[in-house]
Design a protein around this nucleic acid. Structure first.
Lengths: 229, 229
DNA sequence: TAATTAAGTGTGTTTTTTACATTTCCAAAT
DNA sequence: ATTTGGAAATGTAAAAAACACACTTAATTA
């Protein structure tokens, strides 16, 4: 009954990261080709082990930095995966994190170094261990969060069009949304700044660019505002 | 870059359980008085260490069984707590679980054995380590779940009155609800069986008893029904 | 200057949520 | 037998939110 710290089993604690990105069209996940055993040559999430001097958030940050070169990444703990045989090499528990990044911002050299590749969430390859399960759970969580808070701006460039934002939401939620209703709802939230600039790539008319207004957002959160999209 | 399983730091992995109960009036949490070091004599969540042959769910079940004597407990993984110094005795990561039980059902002898005690969530004592933080997170999660799925029947006796159910929801959500609207919503869900029996304790008129209809509920879940209360 | 293409915009309808007060039933007291 | 007290039970109208839906505008290119 009384635990004895000395005699208890210790385990390796891994952190695996589901890195979401968005490329104007599809929600994507960054995967690496493992260049080490076990399961060398197969696709997997980027991961690593928790070190003595770190907490899990620090470990996740470190791992994300290793692959993307980005230091301040939006990131959340997802779930601890602990099946006894999940890693055939050794008893390992993995705490999965998911992260949202602007797909254009990361360091290409690091991607190459890790033989990493962006996969659309609708066309994922086979993955090692329980990594597919992790991704399924991450997508579910992202969907939920998206429908409750205006998350997701991390996935877009600093300036974006309403159309891009809508496509992002559509690809996260996996369904088409009505253009007018979407814009009305977003505007009702009142957390975007409409810029004078237009993006002329998508059409002849050009579409206005917007910016996320972090200050207004923060203020609304503090006022206890509840977001639902 | 390439991990070497041999040289990585291993850690103790604990599981701590937030056990919720409901006593007709208040939402409560079951805490134990630690009879071992560190922090002997202080209040804490019931916990234990993950063993070699178990996954985390099994460990949580084992720990819950130890304290309550109940085998099939509703239970969910909450979050992994990993601050480096959270346990002064040794580097320990704790995965918190929360559980919902019928407060009348558990084994009193075990409670005594562990010097356990039910505390109202509004009057919690000081707790060891980061256990208060765990509880705050658990309550937040429970609130969210409650507002989305008709969870919480696990907290009530098999047969209960509408009033009891409403009080349960009120104590989880921390706010008063309108009686008529509550009943209308619950009835709209169509997952309760109204019994002929009445509970005569609460009033002279007596109030009808209800039962949760697990089959109907299951069916609705399969049909993709989404619940919001 | 006509044609093309995506951007931008508003309203009526339906559904959901909320607010709210009176009557009914039973047991206990008289 | 009658009265009384106290919680249980019940429905509707108003407000708010969600949804469906189609035409006009702006700028470029042929």
């Amino acid at each position: 009954m009384v635990p004895n710290y000395q005699t208890e089993d210790k385990v390796l604690l891994a952190v695996d990261c589901i890195i979401f990105g968005f490329d104007e069209e599809d929600l994507k996940i960054l995967l690496i080709k493992r260049n080490f055993e076990p399961e060398k040559g197969k696709w997997s999430l980027m991961g690593g082990f928790l070190k003595r001097h770190e907490n899990l958030n620090m470990a996740a940050n470190r791992i994300l930095y290793q692959l993307t070169g980005i230091e301040q990444i939006y990131m959340e703990q997802l779930y601890a995966f602990s099946e006894v045989d999940r890693d055939p090499a050794e008893r390992t528990i993995s705490v999965a994190y998911f992260a949202l990044i602007n797909i254009k911002e990361h360091d290409k050299a690091l991607i190459d170094k890790h033989s990493a590749h962006w996969f659309s969430v609708t066309e994922l390859p086979d993955l090692i261990f329980d990594h597919s399960e992790m991704i399924i759970k991450a997508i579910r969580r992202l969907r939920y969060k998206t429908s409750k808070k205006p998350i997701g701006f991390e996935l877009l460039p600093e300036k974006f069009t309403m159309r891009q934002l809508q496509k992002l939401y559509e690809s996260i939620l996996g369904e088409k949304l009505d253009k007018r209703n979407f814009i009305n709802k977003i505007n009702a939230l009142d957390i975007l700044i409409k810029l004078e600039e237009k993006d002329m790539n998508s059409s002849r008319k050009g579409s206005f660019l917007y910016q996320f207004d972090a200050e207004k957002y923060q203020q609304k959160v503090e006022e206890g505002f509840s977001f639902k999209l």
